[in-house]
Amino acid sequence: MLLKLFLSFAYIGTFTFGGGYAMLPMFQRILVTKNNWLTEPEMIEFFSISQCLPGVISTSTAVLVGYKQKGTLGSIAAVLGIVTPSVILIIIIASILSNLTDHPIASRAFMGLRVCVSVLILNAVINLWKNAIVDKPAIIIFALVFLGAILTSLPVALLIAFAGFSGIVIAQYRKIKNSESGGA
C-alpha cells in the first residue's frame, strides 16, 4: 500500500506541468477514478483545505490523502512520491544548464524566457485579485504589504505574519461592532 501511494504520487509528479491548480485534474484521475481512494467531494475538500495551509498546495493534498489511507507513514510516502521526480529532474537540468547559460544562443533564449516569466507572474496577480481582494480592508492590507516589500527590506515572513494578525484583529473588530449594533 505504501509503495502504491508512493508510485501513484510519483506518477502525478512526473506528468503534471504547472503546479497547484493545473494538478487538480490529474489528482482526480489517479486518486478518485483509478484508485478509489477518495470520493469526488473529498478530493475537492482536501484540495481546498490545502489552499488554506502554508506551503505547497499539491504536497499538502498528498499529505491529507496519504494520511487518510495509511496514517503518518502514508502521508510521508505520498509526499516523497510527489516530490522525488521533481528533485531528480531539476538536479539533472541544473547540472546541464550551469555549463550552458553562458552559450550565446541559450542566453538569448533566457532573455525571452525572462520576459515571459514576468508576464506570467503579472497574469497570476490579476487572476488571484478577485479571490483575495474582497473589500476595502483587504485592499489596505494588499497596499501595505506591497509597499513594505518594495520600499523596505523587512523580511517577507514578517509581512505575512503581520497580515495574518491583522486579519484576526479585523474579524474581532467586526464581531464587536455586529454585537453592538445587534443589541441596539
Binding site: 483587504a138 506591497f146 505575512i160 497580515a163 486579519g167
Partner: peptide
C-alpha cells in the same frame, strides 16, 4: 488577512 498579503508580495 493572508490572501491579500500574499498577493501583495
Amino acid at each position: 488577512g493572508l490572501r491579500p498579503a500574499s498577493l501583495g508580495l
